[in-house]
């Protein structure tokens, strides 16, 4: 991962320093900005491969910076927020953030999220086969195999799995999943989502109680992971 540039936008010098040391020691190149305005300028003058953006910035909220960035910047943005902030997290994800981390976070977790976000942004849209650990999804043939055995999925389960797999590493909010799979009228019908995620887990996970593919992000949504 040499020379991949990451922009950190956070007003706390301590957090910036911690992030810089963590990222640099893992081979990333780091740019720093202390305010939303600085962040916007830095991103525009030299677009990085990924942006880490704090929600609570002094001059302008991270939400509005995110919206402005998303008008032209399509690479991954990972949001930082304080604890117990589900509403803010969901809002940021719905506004186009790829992922989020709550402070305090473990650095191992941060690195995993960054790698996964960068990997999924390099996802080849035209790739007809997605391989993820023991799962093999053939989009052209509409066939899902686990350890080379074909899994029998219903139409909805298949649609859900494809949506997850195409967004590997990204947190998909309940609202987003309901809208994409069931349509706009179903956005408040989260019981469907619970049921189909549980069914899908039973078919693709080794142990549905300890999922390794579809991870629950409590109060926010789900994340499909290949880690």
């Amino acid at each position: 991962m040499n020379n991949i540039e990451i922009l950190i936008v956070d007003d706390e010098p301590q957090i910036r320093k911690l992030l810089r040391i963590t990222l640099e020691s893992n081979g990333f190149k780091v740019l720093e900005a202390a305010t939303g305005k600085e962040g916007m300028i830095a991103a525009a003058s030299h677009p990085p491969a990924l942006i880490i953006l704090d929600i609570g910035l002094p001059d302008e909220s991270g939400h509005s910076i995110l919206q402005k960035l998303r008008e032209w910047y399509s690479k991954p943005i990972i949001m930082l927020s304080v604890q117990n902030d589900e509403e803010n997290i969901v809002k940021a994800l719905d506004n186009g953030a790829n992922d989020y981390l709550t402070k305090p976070f473990r650095t191992g977790e941060l690195l995993a999220r960054i790698r996964s976000a960068i990997r999924s942004s390099a996802f080849e849209e035209n790739n007809p086969v997605i391989i993820c650990k023991a799962l093999e999804i053939d989009l052209a043939a509409r066939v899902v195999k686990k350890n080379s055995t074909i899994l029998k999925l219903t139409t909805t389960e298949y649609a859900l799995l494809i949506l997850f797999a195409k967004n590997e590493g990204r947190v998909l909010t309940h609202q987003y999943l309901l809208k994409e799979i069931w349509g706009v009228g179903y956005q408040n019908q989260s019981q469907y989502l619970r049921v189909f995620v549980a069914q899908l887990r039973k078919k693709i996970e080794d142990d549905a109680n300890h999922p390794k593919y579809i991870i629950t992000e409590s109060g926010v949504g789900y994340r499909f992971t290949s880690e």
């Binding site: 019981q191 619970r194 995620v197 549980a198 109680n209 300890h210 629950t216 409590s218 109060g219």
Partner: peptide, 13 residues
């Protein structure tokens, strides 16, 4: 903030 909750999912999480 009430939302549908899968008891098993919650407990194992």
């Amino acid at each position: 903030k009430l939302d549908w909750c899968d008891a098993k999912e919650m407990v194992y999480a």
